[in-house]
């Protein structure tokens, strides 16, 4: 093998009959990369009766693999089909979303092919024969620039790394590829479980007071709830608060929770890990309160307070109540 392939392959993902936004974003990213390498943009969609999804990606060619076992994602069958396809098509770069499915697919593909993996990439580009990615490490506190070389590289791409709209459109062609090697798969999809009905739909609230691990204990939630109340909004939270059982899952903001766009998102005691930012970075006004001046949340907030939430929240609640009369 001499050097990397020049084509860029996007592994599209879909759930409940819809392609994920990140698939379009990756198609846009692939166009950028292929323009630089002079290669083609390719995508692959696996599914069952889902060929219409393949028609939506703005790339040169989409490979569509149809099989009942591929109707819903399960790691083993998907990994098998994708590894075979990548071996055959020999792209230089495979783009995978940094999503729940991507976290299964990308490293498995890298392992099956013996290719390097650049994970958590905000940006990716060619430099000569190498693929260079800019990744987020340490909960977003440090960035890394890393280069992969070899026959090809697998890259996981963070949400929001390219404009989705540039990736929407009819592909040059859709090619059906037969699924093979699906006997005796060792992971099998059983069911989708929808979230339980929520008391409050945080995606519909104009004001969210959002709390993170900095709140320290369940008893302290009351303090934040009072501020939310005074502002006529609702309480939401980062993942650890939900994992601790202090608030229902429906209040979680982020990658595995809800994506919110309120008029005001007030984050108190939230560090701003990439998985959290994914769910709130487009809020109209973001205010963050954190004792750590280097917390990544200050990188997306419009206004920041470097201080103790226990000092600020009660006073703020008082003043908001006064102002509201």
């Amino acid at each position: 093998m001499s050097g990397m392939g020049r084509d860029v392959l996007v592994i599209a993902e879909h759930l409940q009959g819809k392609l994920a936004d990140i698939s379009f974003e990756m198609a846009a990213k692939a166009r950028e990369l292929a323009a630089a390498s002079g290669g083609r943009t390719l995508a692959v969609v696996l599914g069952h009766g889902a060929r219409a999804l393949a028609e939506q990606l703005n790339v040169d060619a989409v490979y569509y693999v149809d099989h009942p076992v591929l109707a819903q994602f399960a790691p083993d069958p998907y990994n098998r089909v994708l590894a075979d396809l990548v071996r055959e098509k020999q792209p230089g770069v495979v783009l995978v979303g940094n999503t729940s499915m991507g976290m299964d697919v990308a490293p498995a593909l890298a392992a099956a092919l013996g290719w390097p993996l650049l994970a958590y990439c905000r940006d990716v580009r060619w430099e000569g024969d190498a693929v260079v990615g800019t990744s987020q490490l340490y909960g977003g506190k440090v960035m890394a620039e890393a280069a992969a070389s070899g026959a090809g590289a697998v890259v996981t791409v963070l949400a929001g790394s390219a404009p989705a709209d540039a990736g929407r459109g009819a592909p040059g062609s859709v090619e059906d590829v037969a699924a093979a090697g699906l006997d005796g798969v060792r992971t099998r999809f059983k069911a989708l479980i929808e979230p339980e009905a929520a008391d409050v739909d945080i995606t519909k609230e104009a004001v969210l007071v959002s709390i993170g691990r900095g709140i320290q204990s369940q008893d302290n939630l009351e303090m934040a709830a009072e501020l939310a109340d005074a502002l006529g909004g609702a309480l939401s939270a980062s993942r650890p608060i939900i994992d601790n059982g202090w608030l229902p899952k429906s209040r979680q903001v982020g990658k595995s929770g809800q994506t919110v766009k309120p008029k005001l998102y007030l984050a108190a005691g939230i560090s701003g890990a990439p998985e959290h930012l994914e769910g709130m970075r487009d809020a109209e006004l973001i205010v963050a309160i954190n004792t750590d001046p280097k917390a990544p949340i200050f990188g997306v907030a419009h206004y920041g307070v470097v201080g103790d939430l226990f000092d600020i929240l009660p006073v703020l609640t008082e003043k908001v109540r006064e102002a509201a009369g």
Partner: peptide, 14 residues
């Protein structure tokens, strides 16, 4: 297995 929006998949593993 957790997806976005609180949706989960139940998957059987050997």
């Amino acid at each position: 297995k957790e997806y976005a929006g609180g949706v989960m998949a139940e998957i059987e593993v050997d």
